[in-house]
């Protein structure tokens, strides 16, 4: 669940700045800490930066992953990307996927959070149903979704049953609906996180502010727009970052539900890298794609962090 990382990420800088100032003043009196952080650095920074460095090296090779003495091709793998329609399709899918899943999750998660704060009956059960998908492994749910969206599956059965049989279609098997299916599954999986974070953030809002707004005659929707929503900005920025990185990491669902198809309609950067690296044994090209993916992920995280901080400063 690395995805859940981001809530604190956008504040990390300010927290560590404070600590740094304090630390420097008292610095000499504190015992040395390097040995304490060393195991974490060796494990994480060591393994991950070693992997990235190695990937960077492989990305300059024309290599199948096994044969000795691979040929050095310089930046060829990178220039090849520019003319690779599947790569650009994967980029487009990832961008569209991020925007749509983020918007829907935010709307639905926010709605649930507000509703659960409004003395709803059976709220405890509703909460469990929204959150359970978060803990279920996508790999385990994949066959369920394949079954549900199959031509003779449950969704079409329900549509026919309620007289909407005209809408029944092979959801996974056609290019026009395959990507929306992947988005639906992702929204199903992750709205629980959005909901829980908004729910928690709303408990931090001072009730007297809401009371004051109400006395001033603000209705429910007005209160939501003018008071609650602005208070949640920090959480929203964190969730945007979580969603962006999550979109770039997307692999399990498209790989298992649609295998990136039909006709590459659900190819993502993650699935494309896997396809190039493992089944096609284009390890060099896969590595070059990986490096591009990593750079995009870092830039996204930085951009969203700056966007978030600028707004907070205002």
């Amino acid at each position: 669940m690395t995805g859940t990382s981001t809530p604190t990420l956008h504040r990390a800088a300010s927290v560590s700045d404070e600590a740094d100032g304090g630390g420097r003043r008292r610095g000499p009196r504190r015992p040395p800490g390097l040995p304490w952080i060393l195991p974490a650095l060796v494990l994480s920074v060591g393994l991950i930066y070693y992997g990235i460095g190695y990937t960077g090296y492989i990305s300059t090779l024309n290599w199948d992953g096994i044969s000795p003495g691979p040929e050095h091709v310089g930046a060829h793998n990178y220039t090849r990307m520019l003319h690779d329609p599947v790569f650009w399709a994967a980029v487009r899918h990832t961008a569209l996927f991020f925007v749509l899943t983020f918007v829907v999750q935010t709307l639905v998660g926010l709605t649930f959070a507000v509703l659960m704060h409004s003395k709803l009956k059976l709220a405890a059960i509703y909460k469990v149903i929204v959150f359970v998908p978060v803990v279920l492994a996508p790999a385990i749910m994949a066959p369920v979704f394949r079954h549900m969206f199959a031509p003779d599956g449950e969704l079409n059965a329900v549509l026919r049953h309620i007289g909407l049989g005209d809408l029944a279609q092979p959801w996974i098997g056609q290019t026009s609906t395959a990507l929306p299916v992947i988005m639906f599954i992702t929204i199903w999986e992750w709205t629980g996180v959005t909901f829980v974070l908004y729910y928690a953030a709303m408990t931090q809002i001072d009730p007297s502010v809401l009371e004051a707004a109400r006395i001033d005659g603000a209705g429910n929707l007005r209160t939501l727009r003018s008071i609650i929503w602005p208070e949640l900005r920090g959480t929203t920025v964190a969730l945007a970052m979580l969603g962006a990185i999550g979109a770039l990491k997307t692999f399990d669902v498209p790989y298992l539900v649609t295998i990136g198809g039909p006709n590459y309609a659900t190819e993502f950067l993650g699935t494309y890298i896997y396809r190039q690296t493992i089944p096609l044994s284009h390890v060099g090209y896969g590595a070059a794609l990986s490096i591009v993916l990593l750079v995009v992920a870092l830039l996204m995280a930085l951009a969203l962090q700056f966007a978030g901080r600028e707004r907070e400063g205002r």
Partner: peptide
């Protein structure tokens, strides 16, 4: 250095590992 690792998609590590 540690925080930058948060953005890493695991697929990037496949080939080197």
């Amino acid at each position: 250095l540690l925080l930058a690792c948060l953005t890493l998609p695991e697929v990037v590590l496949l080939a080197p590992l």
